[in-house]
Amino acid sequence: MRLSRRGKILLRAAVALALAFIYIPLLVIVVEAFNSSRILKWPPPGFTFSWFGKAFESDSAREALVTSIEAGVVAMLIAITLGTLIALAVGRRRFFGRDTISFLVVLPIALPGIVTGVALSNTFTQVLGISLSLMTVIVGHATFCIVVVYNNVVARLRRTSGSFEEASADLGADPWQTFRWVTFPSLRSALGAGALLAFALSFDEIIVTNFTIGAGEETLPIWIYHNLFRPKELPVVPAVAVILIILSIIPVYLAHRLSSDDAGLTPGRGGGAAPTAAPAAIAEAEATAAH
C-alpha cells in the first residue's frame, strides 16, 4: 500500500512500540537473573553469575527437571499413539461423525485450562478415588497433547496420497508391512515435529498440572511457582527462567526443521507455536493458548 511519509513514520513507530512491548519483559528477566542483590530492586546494584551456579546446584530444581522430563516423555508417547490413530482414521477414511472427532480432539485445549484442570482433578478424587500423583499429571498432559500430534499427522496425510498404500496392498504387503514401509516413512518427520511440540507443551504446562499434581511432587514450572513464595529461593528463579527460555528454543528449532514444509507447526496454550503459514498456525495457536 502507498503511504505518505508521515503515515509510514507513524506506522513504523507503532511497530517499534509493539516489538518493545513484546521483548522488554523478556530482557528484564534476563537482567534480573544476573542481579547481585537478593531483593528485587531496579536498576540492579550489581551483576553476578552466582544464581546460575545455585540453580545448577539445587537438588530440588534438578529433581523437578527430571519429573518434568518423565511427565513430558510419557505424555508425549501416549499422545503420539492416540493422535496418530485418530489422524489415520480421520485423514484416510470417510465416516459418520468425522467432524465431531476433530472437534473432540481440539476441545481439551480450546476450553480454558482451568476447566480441564478442575474437571480432571474432580473426577480423579471424587469419582475414581485416585489420589493425585505424577500419573494423574501425565493423564492430563496427554489429553491436551493429542491435538498437536493429530494436527501434524493429519496435515501430512492430507498432502500425501492414499494411493501409495493401495499400491502396497495390491503388491501383496500386509497392513503392518504397508504401515512400516509406506505410511510410516512418509509420516516420520510430522511425527517427530508433533512429538517435540507435545513434549514442549507438557514441559511448560502449569495450569492443569497445578490441579492434578500430588502433594509432594514438583514439575519444573511448579517448582518455580512454589519458589516464588520462598524468599530464600526467590533470587534463583530468574536464573532458572532464563535457562528455560534458552532451552525452549531447542525443540522449537528442531520442530521447525522437521516440519518446515508443513503448516503444522503450532503452539499450545501458554506454549508456543509457529508456522510460516499463519492461518493454519492460528488454528493451532489456540491449542497453546487455551492453557
Partner: peptide, 17 residues
C-alpha cells in the same frame, strides 16, 4: 511467534519484576 514459545510462567515472573 518466538515469545509464544517462551514459558508462560517465565513471562508472568518477568512482569512481577
Amino acid at each position: 511467534l518466538m515469545p509464544l514459545w517462551a514459558s508462560y510462567l517465565v513471562k508472568i515472573i518477568a512482569w512481577r519484576a
